[in-house]
Simulated scan of single mutants.
Amino acid sequence: MTDPPSEPAAVAVALAELRGEVREGFATVNGSLNLLAQRGDQTDRRLDDHEQRLDSLERARWPLPSLAALVGAIGLGLTLWQLARGS
């Protein structure tokens, strides 16, 4: 028959198993953190891309309010000119 492991040996075995489980847990957490960091970088790149696209759209539409004001002023001028001619 084999002798049961002594108390210090059993503790050493339990600590070794616990160390292995802790290492495995840290590896899992590290993998998850790396994935989250990668997704965060991708999100930052997408936000930068959207910001650039919005800036280009805003630059392209600036003349519209100016053109609307110009057309309104021309319409007002023509109306006043017609009223002045008709009188």
Results as ranks from 00 to 15, higher is better:
5 P>H: 15
5 P>R: 04
61 R>H: 10
37 A>Y: 04
15 L>R: 12
6 S>K: 09
8 P>S: 04
23 R>V: 09
79 T>E: 10
12 A>Q: 10
1 M>C: 12
10 A>M: 06
57 L>Y: 01
41 D>G: 02
74 I>F: 15
30 N>C: 09
14 A>C: 13
7 E>V: 07
32 S>Y: 12
12 A>C: 07
3 D>G: 05
49 D>L: 10
47 L>D: 03
31 G>T: 04
46 R>C: 11
56 S>E: 12
28 T>E: 08
75 G>E: 12
71 V>F: 00
7 E>K: 02
86 G>F: 12
46 R>K: 09
84 A>S: 15
42 Q>R: 02
14 A>Q: 14
42 Q>C: 04
28 T>F: 15
82 Q>G: 11
42 Q>V: 03
36 L>K: 11
23 R>K: 11
60 A>T: 07
84 A>G: 15
5 P>F: 00
11 V>D: 06
77 G>C: 15
83 L>T: 05
42 Q>T: 09
57 L>K: 01
3 D>W: 03
69 A>D: 03
35 L>A: 03
25 G>P: 01
32 S>T: 13
36 L>F: 08
19 R>P: 02
70 L>D: 03
20 G>E: 12
73 A>I: 10
7 E>M: 11
20 G>S: 15
34 N>I: 06
73 A>K: 01
67 L>D: 01
12 A>S: 11
25 G>W: 13
72 G>H: 06
69 A>V: 00
48 D>G: 06
36 L>M: 09
61 R>E: 06
7 E>S: 14
42 Q>E: 05
10 A>S: 08
3 D>C: 04
39 R>Q: 14
6 S>I: 02
41 D>A: 07
55 D>F: 02
83 L>G: 01
47 L>R: 02
73 A>S: 05
73 A>N: 01
23 R>H: 10
33 L>R: 03
19 R>K: 14
45 R>N: 10
33 L>T: 04
74 I>H: 14
4 P>R: 10
53 R>G: 00
40 G>T: 06
3 D>T: 01
54 L>W: 04
44 D>A: 14
65 P>C: 00
21 E>V: 02
41 D>M: 03
